[in-house]
Simulated scan of single mutants.
Amino acid sequence: MTIFEGSTALVTGATSGIGYAIAIELARQGAEVVVHGRNAERGAKAVQDIENVGGRARFIAADLSEADDVRRLAAEAGEVDILINNAGIYGFAPTVETDDADFDAHFGTNVRAPYILVQKLVPAMIERGHGNVVNISTVAADKPAAGAGIYGASKAALDLLTKLWADEFGEAGIRVNAVSPGPVETEGSAELGDIVEGLGRTRALQRVGQADEIAKAVAFVASPAASYINGVVLPVDGGSRAERPAA
């Protein structure tokens, strides 16, 4: 498929998990992918994997917790037609055990980094008259999850920015949406053991999702097929279960 032929996509956090799957999917559909990550070895592997499926890619390392490094990433990425704000961190702790470093890390990476990338990359999209931003959110952004207050709050902020940017840039032809995954099987979620499997059983489909399922949804939202979808936070979570009456 060549849906994105001639387009350049920057995917943050693209060396593993959902970000890696998104990078592969966009490359399969014709985009040249700027792979972002922190580890050069994993970045080189992601680029090689993209080339192995016939795609084009290059890697840029950056620490998204550092504002100046985010600005450098935007400058080195150059003209970007599709921005996928996927990279994020998630820590789990109750409020009384969350310190300043945890708080700052979540909001720095999950909110400030996407904000800076939009600030730096969208103006050129406006000049060209087209562009797409897709933010990766989470079901924890609108439903409280025990121990995930800071993570959920940071993603809730990103959801709000998604809707604001959709209005701010929509007149110029720039669409901004978010995809909100449910529990997904990735290298990172594997570290949580049975927790993710248990979350899968809370979904209507009674299973966890796969990274490529999220990637296909992201590719659709960024594609011309979704040309009238703007300011949406799209749940890709297997569906909510109906409330059961108490026994």
Rank of each mutant, 00 (worst) to 15 (best):
F4V: 12
E5Q: 14
T8M: 09
V11F: 00
A14R: 04
T15P: 03
G19E: 05
G19T: 07
I22T: 10
I24G: 01
R28K: 14
E32C: 09
E32T: 15
V33H: 01
V34Q: 01
V35H: 01
R38E: 09
R38H: 13
E41R: 10
V47D: 10
Q48C: 03
I50K: 12
V53G: 08
R56F: 12
I60S: 10
D63M: 02
L64D: 00
D69P: 01
A74P: 09
A77Y: 01
A77I: 01
E79T: 13
I82D: 02
I82E: 01
L83Y: 02
I84S: 00
N86A: 08
A87F: 07
G91H: 11
F92E: 09
V96F: 06
D99G: 14
D100F: 10
A105E: 15
G108I: 04
V111S: 03
R112Q: 12
P114N: 04
Y115A: 13
Y115M: 13
V118L: 05
L121M: 12
V122Y: 04
E127N: 09
R128Y: 10
V134M: 02
S137N: 14
A140M: 10
D142A: 13
A145K: 14
G149I: 13
G152Q: 06
G152L: 04
K155G: 03
A157H: 07
L158M: 09
D159M: 03
K163W: 01
W165S: 01
F169M: 06
G170H: 09
A178C: 06
V179H: 11
S180Y: 07
E187L: 12
G193H: 11
I195D: 06
V196K: 06
V196I: 15
V196A: 07
V196Y: 05
L199I: 05
T202D: 11
Q206G: 12
V208G: 00
G209S: 10
A211F: 05
E213T: 13
I214Y: 04
A215W: 06
K216V: 10
K216D: 06
A219V: 08
V221E: 02
A222P: 00
S223V: 13
A225R: 05
I229C: 13
L234Q: 08
V236I: 15
V236S: 05
G238E: 07
S240K: 11
S240L: 11
R244S: 11
A246V: 14
A247I: 07
